[in-house]
Design a protein around this nucleic acid. Sequence first.
DNA 1: AATGCGGGGCG
DNA 2: CGCCCAGCATT
Length: 342
Amino acid sequence: MQDRVSPLLLAWYDSHARDLPWRVPPGGGSADPYRVWLSEVMLQQTTTAAVAPYFRKFIDKWPDVEALAAAPEEEIMGEWAGLGYYSRARNLVACARAVAERGGFPRSERELRELPGLGAYTAAAVAAIAFGQRAVVVDANVERVVARLFAIDDPLPAARKAIRAAAETITPERRAGDFAQAMMDLGATICTARDPKCLLCPLADLCRARETGRQAELPVKPPRKPKPHRRGAAWWIERDGKVLLVTRPGKGMLGGMRALPDDGWSARRDGSGDPPMPGEWKNLGSVQHGFTHFTLELSVMALAGQASGPLPEGIWHEIGKLEDAGLPTLFAKAASRARERG
DNA sequence: AATGCGGGGCG
DNA sequence: CGCCCAGCATT
């Protein structure tokens, strides 16, 4: 069975590959390692639809790894704002500089794996897609396709070892990059998490889960923990048409990003509620935001009169140009609330 | 092996 | 609403 998978899948890919901004069409020549790397990092835990505009913006602004390596880190963080998982942006900068320094991307999976922000998946994907190496590429799509194809019914994450071993047996020597992208396209469009479209699947006749109708039950995932709820406050400090923004510490939630001053909700269970300085504060209402492991209700407080103490360390940003401030989504929501109600 | 880390889109 | 997504670093 194993030897029949990649020919069927590659033939399907040749006519059904998705047209994506970072992709070279099947048989369409060699991929630029910079574009492959940039897209793969953006695509970590992020959908293709969310990535596409960011990818175009980055390529426009920084067309090669040398340009990206020469850019100020704050500017790159600002362009990443809204895409999430901001440690990726910090690692992106470190990686670009390391690669520019050594004169280009390494070609082997082992050397790629040592670069900041490249784990097992991304190293394999770049090696296969950009350099044509045979590498076993396992992401959430491949996990799902393989778990169904081989009817692997142990729950994740314990099943990962068996899934990788099975993926190894179907990865071809040639066209490993196309094979990886074909598996991901199949997972994204046919072998979907909910309601798989088996009638359209080129591998349906080989699929062991489909034999017994269990495709929708695989892979088996562990139950999810409930998200706690937290409260916090952010401070809108306005002067002469400008608002005070701070830069968050490099590590932790929204690390290294521009933000409104807040009461420390990210470091404890709830924020302290203490304003950064004494004064008459007015509540402009709150915004709701969901993070990976908790939800937050953030009250937006505006200074009504004059400040009576030292201000937090920060920069004054034109309120009319807040869209360019590089605020992550939570603080973009808070700023919108302040501008509506303040 | 478990946890922290964003945000948006879909059913 | 809950679930899912081209995962990585840290512990």
